[in-house]
């Protein structure tokens, strides 16, 4: 049977193919059975972060809230106050003759306009790597829960011992509750069982628990499962590593000191809500589109795909040519 121009065995069609782990950080010898179509596919196999379809010119694939420019470099330190979002109109930054940076040529024609919105600095580091190593335990009180213009999930304002900050809101958080960030299991706070919204390193959590806002590398901040209703499931644990199933159903192996938040992300009914009108899209800064999506390319049904091998992350982030800010 020909799918995607590749001959597949019956075993592969039934999604029972053998999982062949891929190791990143050094070039992996390709097995003779794997077939390379193009240079792009080769790059994809080499390194997921530099070549995968992470960003797209279409905002419908990037996410409906993906259009923002926040001047974070002007902030001397963390603030809970909302920051202004500058609209780029889908244009790339260029220098003019004064060496000022101004919007230049159009990069994507699908963005533009929209209502003004505010950007809240959501802290994805529930615990830093130092606090995990030191075995810190501290609690925070939830004072406010509200929707955010720039993401699908809700955000929560918490008052901690030193400062107050915005965090991602999980499904069962309520105003007035205490959430725990702990690098050790303590009976006095949670009674040996982590509550919804608590942050722990993955080594302390049991197999089968649903977690969200999971770190890929210790101390880097939560990166996966941050949108509404998303969660990862812990499937395995072995010698200092934890295997998780990501929202895409792909599996990933990370260091056990990576911090995760227990529970699923809030606003899980987000996928079910209606835009209401075409103008609602314009309010979000999305220009009208035409044509039909053929994204899955299964024509009339879901395409049968083999299970992909789990990603194995090293202890430290490997060299990436990526200047990303958080968010």
């Amino acid at each position: 049977m020909l799918i995607d121009g590749v001959k597949r065995t019956l075993v592969q069609q039934l999604n029972i193919c053998f999982k062949q782990p891929k190791i990143f950080g050094k070039v992996q010898p390709l097995s003779p059975t794997s077939f390379i179509h193009s240079q792009r596919q080769f790059l994809q196999k080499l390194n997921i972060f530099n070549s995968a379809r992470k960003f797209h010119s279409s905002p419908f694939i990037n996410g409906r809230y993906g259009h923002r420019l926040v001047k974070l470099w002007e902030q001397p330190e963390y603030t809970t106050e909302p920051l202004h979002v500058y609209r780029t109109g889908g244009r790339l930054p260029v220098k003019n003759w004064k060496d000022e940076i101004v919007p230049g040529r159009v990069w994507t024609a699908k963005l533009g306009g929209g209502l003004p919105r505010k950007w809240y600095w959501v802290d994805t580091h529930r615990m830093t790597a130092e606090e995990v190593v030191a075995g810190a335990v501290f609690q925070e009180k939830i004072t406010k829960i509200m929707p955010d213009d720039n993401r699908s999930a809700f955000i929560a304002l918490v008052a901690g011992p030193v400062k107050r900050r915005w965090i991602l809101c999980t499904e069962n958080m309520k105003v007035g509750d205490l959430v725990t960030n702990s690098a050790q299991l303590t009976e006095s706070l949670t009674g040996w069982t982590p509550n919804d919204g608590d942050a722990y390193p993955l080594c302390l959590l049991a197999i089968g628990t649903k977690v969200c806002s999971v770190e890929f590398f210790p101390g880097k901040g939560g990166q996966i499962a941050r949108s509404a209703g998303a969660f990862c499931t812990i499937t395995k644990k072995f010698d200092g590593r934890v295997q998780l199933q990501m929202p895409s159903k792909r599996e990933i192996v990370v260091n056990e000191k990576c911090v995760a938040v227990v529970g699923t992300v809030s606003n899980s009914n987000h996928w079910n809500e209606d835009w209401g009108s075409a103008f609602r899209r314009r309010e979000y800064g999305l220009r009208p589109r035409t044509g039909r999506k053929h994204k899955n390319d299964g024509r009339f049904a879901r395409r049968a795909m083999p299970v992909r091998a789990p990603l194995i992350m090293p202890d430290k982030p490997f060299l990436q040519k990526d200047n990303n800010f958080e968010e």
């Binding site: 193009s38 240079q39 792009r40 790059l43 530099n50 070549s51 379809r53 992470k54 960003f55 797209h56 990037n62 993906g66 259009h67 923002r68 420019l69 926040v70 001047k71 974070l72 470099w73 780029t88 889908g90 244009r91 790339l92 930054p93 220098k95 060496d99 000022e100 940076i101 990069w107 990526d322 200047n323 990303n324 800010f325």
Partner: peptide
């Protein structure tokens, strides 16, 4: 270009590109 997705020109993801060089 073949690897145009790798360039990561998304202006939303690259706020540092909007940062004034002499900031």
């Amino acid at each position: 270009p073949l690897n145009w997705r790798d360039l990561n020109f998304n202006p939303a993801r690259l706020p540092s590109a909007w940062k004034p060089p002499d900031w």
